[in-house]
């Protein structure tokens, strides 16, 4: 503001108040009124620009935020879908592990590989070296599975024993057909299970 405006001015005659004797109770009211030129010279466009600009910025900001939030929603949705797929993979692998580690299956595999339990325990007493019991070798076909596996497990239907797996020449995999679950599902197509 120019210093000229700060200079005291005479009170102009009020257009609103009819000319007449001044009221004795009122103190004279004096205010600065810019002249028309001065008024026009004020930078109103700047204010308007600032306001409009701010509004624009706000709206743009809100738009961007809104885009970011919805983008986040899609990311969450995608990740949740992926998490579900991973959970399915975990479930499938857990199920496979469960059935493969069932005692029927382990015992059948052990027997197929030539391991036979000996139902005739023999002990060596450390104090005097005495042998308690009559050692007798366990013979093939005499183990607990001599009559075949008699404890059913529907989950093992069609799961081959280790000795029944294909030779490496045919497939290249060390143990095709045992592990049935899909690999990490997010990385492409899961392999088709070979055992049900």
């Amino acid at each position: 503001m120019s210093t000229a405006l700060a200079a005291p001015l005479r009170r102009p005659p009020s257009p609103l108040r009819p000319q007449g004797p001044a009221l004795p109770s009122r103190a004279p009211h004096i205010e600065i009124v810019p002249v028309r030129a001065q008024r026009r010279a004020r930078p109103r466009a700047v204010y308007a620009g600032v306001v409009v600009g701010s509004l624009g910025a706000l709206m743009t900001g809100q738009l961007l935020l809104s885009i970011a939030v919805s983008d986040g929603a899609y990311t969450i949705d995608r990740l949740q879908t992926e998490q579900k797929a991973q959970a399915r993979t975990v479930q499938q692998l857990t199920e496979d592990l469960g059935r493969l580690s069932s005692p029927q299956f382990l015992a059948q595999n052990a027997e197929a590989l030539g391991m036979v339990p000996n139902a005739n325990p023999v002990w060596l007493r450390m104090s005097d070296g005495a042998v308690i019991g009559a050692p007798a070798p366990a013979r093939a076909g005499t183990g607990v599975l001599a009559a075949g596996s008699l404890v059913a497990n529907d989950l093992l239907a069609g799961v081959p024993l280790v000795t029944e797996l294909g030779t490496p020449a045919s497939g290249g995999d060390a143990a095709p057909g045992v592990v049935t679950g899909p690999q990490v599902a997010s990385q492409g197509q899961p392999p088709a299970p070979t055992t049900r």
Binding site: E95, P103, N153, L155
Partner: peptide, 8 residues
């Protein structure tokens, strides 16, 4: 529900 050990 699955029962990994079957009839065991």
């Amino acid at each position: 529900r699955v029962y990994p050990n079957g009839a065991v």
